[in-house]
Every structure is written in structure tokens, then in C-alpha cells.
Design a binder for these strands. Structure first.
Length: 856
RNA sequence: GCGAGGGUGGCGGAACUGGCAGACGCGCCAGACUUAGGAUCUGGUGGGCAACCAUGGGGGUUCGAUUCCCCCCUCUCGCACCA
């Protein structure tokens, strides 16, 4: 009789319906068990899910399902990061309204996630484009405004011509837009900012209190925050009322300052420039501004500058030194002004050499004396103070505090801490985002929209041209408003919020998605937060993950909850990659454009290119829908978890998918082909008849596998090794020739296989579990526990090494004493051969494991 | 330049605190069952005829090193004039 074939389509559809009907994954609000909040970064609804999503969400689903079976009370929600540019671009290109496009994409992707069998609590779904979500963005914004954590300022901003909007500093990578790679330009605009810098210290400190985060993410955040301790000093400009403020990490070198460098864009640069230098300085400033565009990331450029004609006075020495405008001084860091100490700073040294400025040594190495005339580079190490008046002879490290104190005494400075982190600019000149809830009144100025008028709804009727100005500015009905204070005609803010605002607190909304009086309910948030396990891509290391931490702290300080950090454990999964193929004439090729290693269009060789992150432009994408049709969700999930550990990049391989499919088929047949045996089996009774031979081996293997799979999932998220352990047990069961003698042992093992496999391949597991005669579905079944008695072996195999090389093995009782083992080893024939005629010099015994005999 | 993480069979990857290197899967080879099989099952599969040699290369510690230490090569990622 032919065995019924494994039909993934029928099985998966059936179980998805069952789960849906039973509300299987609804969070039990008052359920028993410790809470566990597992969260995957919610997707942007671009239209279809991609393999990156499949991997991300498969990892999360294993965690969620595993913990449900372990009896934890699991919160596992999903939603949509659904404001953003692609919707708007689609509208411009195809004439679809962003809201229509977004709704359709969400519907489609939700279906796809359903087809993957992910265990989400869908009734908690949030979508950031909906007024009932973004009204709370606005609410939070107003609270931040009240607290002084949101403010408006005219400033130099990053402008992306491709996206026709402003970008935050975090969204500029190597001078390019993080999204579209256009070269970012500088613009001066009136912008709303969130004062993330108020939390710089705390955000930094807590990076040392997040042991569940990958070290490299923490390091990236620390670098981005960029704390440095030093001093601030004020220099009076000679013959002027102006003062130049500088920040330095090396106050010890103050006496070695021989000139001052200002950023070309520094407001004082033009102010203090003398009449005769003006033309030159302005020309220089214009040139620096023009060159500054690609500047970031381009590495070091040649040091250039120009003398302003002005001098400033060293507050401690009274020395007058020239003030230069210099191209390497950044306006965006510190104060935009630098005290230049050529002897002890490499950049100042290079600059001084170009312009013939003096080099004054104030620190000597412990064992040498520096000669300014012959120095080839700045001396930046520690040493002993010289040429520094009363500080001479001190260690420079001591002089740092001493000189800072002297500055403070002179009223010309103080100890301070400086950060690279800038405030977060959130204004975006685009339509498809959350409106910023303020109005501008001719009489009252900037007026917040009253809380009771929220949400400020994004108007639906809008013309999108992609021309660049804020599209909302064209919407008369939106722009024209009444001043909430005086009632006169006023103008609404027409910029929208950066969509990273939306995603900075969505994990809180999931805790009480229907809350109507506050963004989230405090007790719900405190019940579920922090997220126990957060899973997503590394690309958000300093974007979303920093903003979300900031929001959590700011909301705490608004009194909305009482915890400090949003994500207890973070897993950053690797990218999904695949081999590329390229033809000289036609560039990247899809797999179907290659036949017999040749390009189907021109017949030239289609070269196998490097393995790269899946992307449409490289034509190396795999469509999850196609995979699900062909192999099913279980196979898709299983392969993406088996092929590599989650944090590493995954090389997609069609053959590997095939392998995963085969394995599921193998488990399927293991059950169906042995149905009679399994049906006849009594449950395995602990303490029943003594086992021996292969039945004992299988019984022990079953419990060892349970132990290993449990540990691999729970302790390390090493799903690849967990799956391989299940495969080993399945292989052993195919070899089990006494299954009819001990059907109980066989059935115990088969049931373990099905249960252990269920977080990875839930549909086929449900199906087999039911066919094994279980009334309760797998997801409600307790995760198996290894029987400690079954794990104990009564014999141990001792590996025998002779001079470090494996030569033989011997089996002894586990509790054998060393003398007994030594005796057994010496009696071993092979061992005797290898040691014949030699003297035993050393006998090393690692109990239960290995013997190493050193002979000679 | 600075910082972090990698380099193990033909390929993806195992080896948790030093203890049988290459689990598991792919691929490949052979056999069985078949009209047939790209299905399935079984066996084999790092190199070398062997002694032996093999975890990027070279040193070291150790009875014993993929694992610990030092030097070097290489790849990936992040930062990059941050005063």
C-alpha cells in the first residue's frame, strides 16, 4: 500500500485556519506563567514580504512558539511601519493614493505572513498611518514640547534632493541618503528638533547595562554618542568685544597654543575678520562650503586656512595669537573653534607647517626633550610639562585638572563634557507622515494644537507632484486654521514627522493597542515591558534602536511608565544573500535568464558573481510566495533557520531548500509508514521493564535530543544545531530495528521528534501530532522534558591517546575509579602494541573522557 | 588610520568552560527497490598507497590547542579631520 504523500498545501492551509478559528495565539491577558514579550521589527509595507522578513520572523516565531509550549505567557504582536516615502513615490508614479497603496500592501503582506504560519496576536496589530495611532505621536510631541524636549530652530540641515526632504544626522551615511543614496546637500531651514542630547549621558551609561545586546551594536551607539571629557575655555578677541569659546580634551596643552582655528562657517569668522582680510576670508569660506558636500567619509583632506587679521588672547598666558579660519574645523562639533597646539596635535601640526606658524612644545616625553625645529609629527602621548609657567614639572595628566582649575579661577573656562550626538531633526517636507501638531499665528506665534483637538488628521485630497515643497502647504483646507489661543486666522505647520518617530514607541502601543486616553496604559506597559527579545537587522544599530531608547527614557520622564530601557535582549540577524550572475552585455541576470551557464539573450557566458545581499537590482532575490507554493511554509522556515546561525549572513541555496523539504518528508514517512506500530504502542512507562540493546540506545538518544534542542533554543538561539540534532534522532529511528519489540520506546521518540520540530515547522507537526492520536494541538502541548535517568549512561567510552594521538578506545563503567581505568587501558591490545618496549612517563586521565599516555 | 568580528572538506556549517576536528545538511560515488526515476531506502565520502598531514601563515604555553598567548597575512562591517 502506497503511503499518503506529504501535501504541504493541504496541511498548511488547514492548520492556519484552525489556529485562526481557535484564536490560538491571542495573548492571555491574565494567563498563568511568567510574561515573555518577543518582538520582531515591524515591516514597512512595501508590497510583498522578502526573504529578510521571512528570516527575521521565522526566528521570532520559533522563540514565541517554544516559550508558549514552555508555559510562558507570551506576547507576540505584529504591525506596520506604514508612513514613508515609497507610498508617496508610488502615488506620483502610478497615481494611486498613498493610503490606498498602503492599505493594499498591508492586506497582501498580512496574507503572506499568515501563509508562513507565524503566531501573531493579530487583534493587537498597529499601523502607524492610522489616525488612532499617530494621534499619540502628536500627543507625545506636545508633551515633549511642554517639557522643552521639542523645539524649533533655524539651522543647517541635511537635504536629500532625491527624497526632497531633510534627513537626520543618523540618516546620512558617507554623505549620502541612507535610503536613496543621493548626495546630501546642506540647506538652512527652520526645523523641529527633539532634544535627544538631553539624554546623551544616560543613553551612553546604559550601554554598559545592556548585557543582552550584541557588543558591536553597543559600540556603534557609544561611538555615535561620542562622549569626550575636557574643558571649555573663552578667549577674548583683541580690540573687540567678541569672545571665542573653544572645547578641548587637552587643557594641559593650553600654553602650547600658537594660533586659533575657526570653522569657516563659524558666525565669528566674518564678524572679527579685518577689513583688509575680508575678501580673502569670504572667498575661502565660500570655497569650503562648496567643497564640504562630499566631505564626510572622504577621509582627510589637505589642510587649508586663511588668516582673519584678528588676534585672540590666551586667558592664562596673556599671549596674543592669530585667529585663522580653517577647512578642517567642523562647525557641527564642539563650538566650531579650536585652540591650535601644533606641537601636540597632528592636525594643528600639519596646518602650522603649511602656514609657517610657530610650534611650541609644552610636554616632553618622559625620557627625551623635543625640539620644535626638527619634529616630524605632533607628540600626542603623555609626558612632563615644560614652558608652562607654574605647571612645569607636573605630569601632563595632572596638569589637565590643574589648568582647568586655573581657567575656572580666571573666569575663563570650566571642566565640561562634549558629545558628538546632535539633536534629532524630525521635520520632513513630505506628505505621507504624521502632521506636526502646531499652528503659526501672526499674533501668538507658534501655538501647540490643544490636546482635545487631536488628531490633526492628514488630509486625503492632496496633489502629489514630487516637486519638493511640502505637499501639505498646497492643501488650503489643511493649512488654514484658527489660532487656538486668539481665534484669528493662522497657518498650520505643513511638515510631517520623521517616520522614525512612529517606530520609537510602537512596542509600547502593542501592550494596550486600544488605549484611548493615553498612548498606552501604564499597568499594561509595566506588565509586558521591557521586550524580552527583540529581533531585527543590524542596519538600525544607531537609528531606530537609539531613537527607541531615547523615547523610552523621555516617556518615563513624562511619567508614563517606570522603566529605563525598551529592549532587554537584542538579536541582530544576518542578511539573506545569494549568488549573483552577470553577463558582459546585459549585466545582472535572473536565474531564468541563464541557460547552460549562458545568457539567454546573447549567448555569452553568464559568470557566477559574488554572493551578495538579495536585492532586486542584483536580480538575486527569491520570492517567498513562490517558495511557499512549491515547498510550503514549513520548508521555507526550516531552511532559513537551518542554513546558518541567526546572527550570521545566510547563503541562499536552492539545494539546501530541497534538503529541508526532504527532511520533512522523511519525518512524514517515519510516522505514516509506521502507523500500525505506533497505534499499537502503549505509552512509555518510566520505571517499566529494563531496556537493553538498541531500544536503550533510542530511549537515551530521545532524551539527549530533547535536552540538546531545548538548550540550543533557550540558551543560544542556535536553531541550526537544534535542527541537526532532530535530524540525528530521525536518522537513528530509521535505523531502529527493534521498534516492533519496543513500540513504546519508538512512539516516545517519534512524539519527541514531532514536538521538538513544532516551533520550526509547525504545520506538519500539528498534522502528525493529530495523526498520532493526540486530541490537543501541539501548540497547547507542553514542551517535552528530558528524563534525567534516561540521560545517565552506565558505561563510558574512554578515548586512549598515546603521545597525544588517538590510538584506541576502551569501555568502562561510568563510575570506574582511575586505577580501574588505568588497568583496563593497559590491558587493551592496541594500546599494548603502541606502547610495547616503551616506558610510561606520564598517565593523564580526564574522568569519563580521555586518557593520554606519554611514553618514550 | 581607529574599532569590532571572521578565515575549518567541493559548499553551508558543527565542535558549550582546552580533551576523538569535520556533527547535520548539500553535492558527489556505489548499491537496493523499480518499466523508469531527478522519488525512496542503504552504504561510502578531508588529503595521502602508507607512516602520517590537515582548522589562513609562523612561533609559544600544555600530556593534549580550531579553542589560550605573541607576531604576521587576509576578508567583512562600523567610524573616520570629533579638537
Amino acid at each position: 500500500m502506497a503511503t499518503e504523500r506529504y501535501d504541504h498545501n493541504a496541511i498548511e492551509g488547514r492548520w492556519q485556519e484552525t489556529w485562526e478559528r481557535d484564536g490560538a495565539f491571542r495573548t492571555k491577558k491574565d494567563g498563568a506563567g511568567d510574561k515573555y514579550y518577543v518582538l520582531e521589527m515591524f515591516p514597512y509595507p512595501s508590497g510583498k514580504i522578502h526573504m529578510g522578513h521571512v528570516r527575521n520572523y521565522s526566528i521570532g516565531d520559533v522563540v514565541a512558539r517554544f516559550l508558549m509550549m514552555r508555559g510562558r505567557n507570551v506576547l507576540h504582536p505584529m504591525g506596520w511601519d506604514s508612513f514613508g516615502l515609497p507610498a508617496e513615490n508610488a502615488a506620483i508614479q502610478h497615481g494611486t493614493h498613498p493610503s490606498v497603496w498602503t492599505r493594499e500592501n498591508i492586506a497582501n503582506m498580512k496574507t503572506q505572513l499568515g501563509r508562513m504560519g507565524f503566531s501573531y496576536d493579530w487583534p493587537r496589530e498597529v499601523a502607524t498611518y492610522k489616525p488612532d495611532y499617530y494621534r499619540w505621536n502628536q500627543w507625545i510631541f506636545l508633551k515633549l514640547l511642554e517639557k522643552g524636549l521639542a523645539y524649533k530652530r533655524r539651522s543647517h540641515v541635511n537635504w536629500c534632493p532625491g527624497c526632497a526632504t531633510v534627513l537626520a544626522n543618523e540618516q546620512v551615511e558617507d554623505g549620502q541618503c541612507w535610503r536613496c543614496s543621493s548626495a546630501v546637500e546642506e540647506k538652512e531651514l527652520e526645523q523641529w528638533f527633539l532634544r535627544i542630547t538631553a539624554y546623551a549621558g544616560e543613553l551612553l551609561d546604559f550601554t554598559y547595562k545592556l548585557p543582552g545586546w550584541p557588543e558591536r551594536v553597543l559600540i556603534m551607539q557609544r561611538n555615535w554618542i561620542g562622549k569626550s571629557a575636557g574643558a571649555e575655555a573663552v578667549f577674548k578677541v583683541a580690540d573687540s568685544s567678541a569672545e571665542i569659546r573653544i572645547f578641548t580634551t587637552r587643557p594641559d596643552t593650553l600654553h602650547g597654543m600658537t594660533f586659533m582655528s575657526l570653522a569657516a562657517a563659524h558666525p565669528l569668522t566674518s564678524k572679527i575678520t579685518t577689513a583688509e582680510r575680508r575678501a580673502e576670508v569670504e572667498a575661502f569660506a565660500a570655497r569650503v562650503k562648496a567643497e564640504a558636500k562630499p566631505g564626510r567619509g572622504a577621509g582627510e583632506i589637505k589642510k587649508e586656512g586663511v588668516f582673519t587679521g584678528a588676534y585672540c588672547v590666551n586667558p592664562l598666558t596673556g599671549d596674543k595669537v592669530p585667529v585663522y579660519a580653517a577647512n578642517f574645523v567642523l562647525m557641527g562639533y564642539g563650538t566650531g573653534a579650536v585652540m591650535a597646539v601644533p606641537a601636540h596635535d597632528q592636525r594643528d601640526f600639519e596646518f602650522a607647517k603649511v602656514y609657517g606658524l610657530p610650534v611650541k612644545v609644552v610636554i616632553n616625553p618622559p625620557d627625551a626633550t623635543l625640539d620644535p625645529a626638527s619634529m616630524q609629527e605632533a607628540y600626542v602621548e603623555d609626558g612632563v610639562m615644560v614652558n608652562s609657567g607654574r605647571f612645569n614639572g607636573m605630569k601632563n595628566t595632572e596638569a589637565m585638572t590643574a589648568i582647568t582649575a586655573a581657567l575656572a579661577e580666571a573666569g575663563a573656562g570650566r571642566e565640561t563634557v562634549n558629545y558628538k550626538l546632535r539633536d534629532w531633526g524630525i521635520s520632513r517636507q513630505r506628505y505621507w507622515g504624521c502632521p506636526i501638531p502646531v499652528v503659526y499665528c501672526g499674533t501668538c506665534g507658534t501655538v501647540p494644537v490643544p490636546y482635545e483637538e487631536l488628531p490633526v488628521v492628514l488630509p486625503e485630497d492632496i496633489k502629489l507632484t514630487g516637486k519638493g515643497a511640502s505637499p501639505l502647504a498646497e492643501a488650503e483646507g489643511f493649512v488654514n486654521a484658527k489660532c487656538p489661543k486668539c481665534g484669528k486666522a493662522a497657518r498650520r505647520e505643513t511638515d510631517t514627522m520623521d517616520t522614525f518617530v512612529d517606530s520609537s514607541w510602537y512596542f509600547l502601543r502593542y501592550c494596550s493597542p486600544k488605549a484611548e486616553t493615553l498612548p498606552f496604559d501604564r499597568s499594561d506597559a509595566e506588565r509586558w515591558m521591557p521586550v524580552d527579545q527583540y529581533i531585527g537587522g543590524i542596519e538600525h544599530a544607531v537609528l531606530h534602536l537609539l531613537y527607541a531608547r531615547f523615547f523610552t527614557k523621555a516617556l518615563r520622564d513624562l511619567g508614563l511608565h517606570g522603566f529605563d530601557e525598551p529592549f532587554k535582549n537584542l538579536l541582530t540577524q544576518g542578511m539573506v544573500c545569494k549568488e549573483t550572475r552577470k553577463c558582459h552585455a546585459h549585466g545582472f541576470l535572473y536565474p531564468e535568464e541563464v541557460r547552460d551557464g549562458k545568457c539567454v539573450q546573447c549567448g555569452t557566458e553568464a559568470k557566477a558573481g559574488p554572493v551578495e545581499k538579495m536585492s532586486k537590482s542584483k536580480k538575486n532575490v527569491v520570492d517567498p510566495d513562490v517558495l511557499i507554493d512549491e515547498y510550503g511554509a514549513d520548508t521555507t522556515r526550516l531552511f532559513s533557520l537551518f542554513a546558518a546561525p541567526p546572527e550570521k549572513d545566510l547563503d541562499w541555496s536552492e539545494d539546501g531548500v530541497e534538503g529541508a523539504y526532504r527532511f520533512i518528508g522523511r519525518v512524514w514517512r517515519l510516522v505514516l509508514e509506521n502507523m500500525d506500530t505506533l497505534n499499537a504502542a502503549e505509552p512509555y512507562a518510566v520505571g517499566g521493564a529494563t531496556l537493553e540493546g538498541s531500544a536503550l540506545d533510542v530511549h537515551r538518544a530521545t532524551h539527549r535530543t530533547i535536552k540538546k534542542v531545548t538548550q540550543d533554543i533557550e540558551e543560544r538561539f542556535h536553531f541550526n544545531t537544534a535542527i541537526s540534532a532532530i535530524m540525528e534522532l530521525v536518522n537513528a529511528l530509521y535505523q531502529f530495528n527493534e521498534k516492533d519489540a519496543r513500540p513504546d520506546v519508538f512512539k516516545e521518540a517519534v512524539e519527541a521528534v514531532v514536538l521538538l520540530l513544532s516551533p520550526f515547522a509547525p504545520h506538519v507537526s500539528e498534522e502528525l501530532w493529530q495523526r498520532l492520536g493526540n486530541a490537543e494541538p501541539v501548540y497547547k502541548t507542553a514542551w517535552p522534558r528530558p528524563d534525567p535517568d534516561a540521560l545517565v549512561a552506565d558505561e563510558a567510552t574512554i578515548v586512549i591517546q598515546i603521545n597525544g594521538k588517538v590510538r584506541s578506545k576502551v569501555t568502562v563503567p561510568v563510575d570506574a575509579a582511575e586505577e580501574f581505568v588505568k588497568d583496563a587501558v593497559i590491558k587493551d591490545e592496541k594500546t599494548a602494541e603502541w606502547t610495547k618496549g616503551k616506558t610510561l612517563r606520564k598517565f593523564v586521565y580526564v574522568p569519563g573522557k580521555i586518557v593520554n599516555m606519554v611514553v618514550g
